[in-house]
Design a protein around this nucleic acid. Structure first.
Length: 243
DNA sequence: AAAAGAGGCAACCGCCCTGTA
DNA sequence: ATACAGGGCGGTTGCCTCTTT
């Protein structure tokens, strides 16, 4: 979302909040006309989404972007959150054990990536899918029968591959305490994580139903950034005439 | 040093499923 | 029973980076 804002050198915080809020609300009509941004997410967009979910939780993906000041589709926000921004999303190199789980699971489940990913703590279906196409597909040709079992398997056959997976999962769990810090996203969003204390529950904590609540959201977001010395709101966001 | 090709990854698209009115 | 909206999933695309020539 690009919202032209002209800054004077002596703008007050309260004026800035009001200005940002006004711009956001004014831009909502633009969002409603379908002019949604696509492509890579900026640091600012990430921060807006994280801050909003941290405050209000996930209540409605299709409505959230408008309240959060994002010119993105709900699906885009959901994808970004699920695959990248959500805490405990594991980035980095796949271990041998993880690759083994993927290979074994795929030999039974086929391309059911979400099901395969559920056996790998912290990994997303998108990650698993990408890793499969990039690294494991060729290996699987040699190692396993490549006839995909795309239809639903009976519980017994699924259970057979759950044993090795669960065994490895238990090993993962023993490492999770350090994993939380070790596998933070490698991009610029890492700093955002370090600044925000997420609660255990991100869901259904309520929507900002009133203008006052939404104004409060922006005010607190502004305050957090100023307190942490981030200054994202008044510099990165507002400079270059782009919010 | 520059161009071309390959690989990896983030994100979009469209379909499907589920819940609700 | 039906229509609709929201969310989930898998396939695919396109961009960026790295490697090779």
């Amino acid at each position: 979302m690009c919202i032209p804002i002209t800054l004077s050198s002596a703008i007050h915080a309260t004026d800035l909040i009001t200005l940002v809020y006004t711009k956001i609300m004014a831009s909502s009509s633009e969002m409603n006309t379908g002019e949604l941004k696509k492509g890579l997410w900026s640091h600012e967009e990430d921060q807006l989404l994280i801050s909003y979910i941290n405050r209000y939780g996930i209540w409605n993906w299709s409505q959230m972007p408008r309240f959060a000041g994002l010119a993105r589709s709900g699906k885009s926000c959901r994808l970004r959150w699920m695959n990248y921004l959500k805490p405990n999303v594991k980035k980095g190199i796949f271990s041998e054990e993880e690759e083994e789980i993927i290979l074994q699971s795929h030999s039974v489940l086929g391309n059911r990536w979400s099901e395969i990913a559920s056996r790998l703590p912290g990994r997303t279906d998108n990650d698993v899918k990408n890793h499969w196409h990039a690294h494991l597909k060729k290996r699987a040709n040699h190692q396993y029968d490549m006839t995909p079992k795309t239809t639903k398997q009976n519980d017994d056959s699924v259970e057979m591959i759950q044993h090795p997976a669960n065994h490895v999962n238990s090993n993962f769990e023993s490492c999770l305490t350090s994993y939380d810090n070790t596998f933070l996203p490698s991009s610029s969003t890492t700093s955002v994580y370090q600044e925000i204390n997420f609660g255990d529950d991100y869901y259904d904590t309520g929507s900002p139903g009133t203008v006052d609540e939404l104004q409060c959201f922006w005010q607190q977001l502004y305050s957090e950034n100023m307190d942490s010395g981030n200054n994202v709101i008044d510099q990165d966001l507002l400079n270059e005439d782009c919010f």
